[in-house]
């Protein structure tokens, strides 16, 4: 299974991909807010989004799975 994880702890501000979307390497898939800063999460993998694990407003810890790609 291929996963996109949070690079640091923060709150999910925005999600730019939904189930079924094709994700390319380096694509911005999610925006986290940590310490009043916007932290873009870029995908380190390629694939189609199978599941988005978080909702806008969720707090995530470093390493938490944000999306699963197939």
């Amino acid at each position: 299974m291929k996963e996109i994880t949070a690079s640091m702890a923060g709150t999910v501000l925005n999600i730019f991909a939904k189930e079924g979307d094709q994700i390319n390497l380096g694509q911005e898939v999610l925006m986290l807010e940590s310490m009043k800063m916007e932290i873009p999460i870029e995908s380190g993998i390629e694939g189609v989004v199978k599941e988005v694990k978080v909702n806008i407003g969720d707090f995530v810890n470093e390493g938490d799975v944000l999306m699963v790609l197939g």
Binding site: M8, A9, S34, M35, M37, I39
Partner: peptide
């Protein structure tokens, strides 16, 4: 700031 001095990313 608790942040990386190059990329300005937070560092908790």
């Amino acid at each position: 700031y608790a942040e990386d001095s190059v990329r300005f990313l937070p560092s908790p």
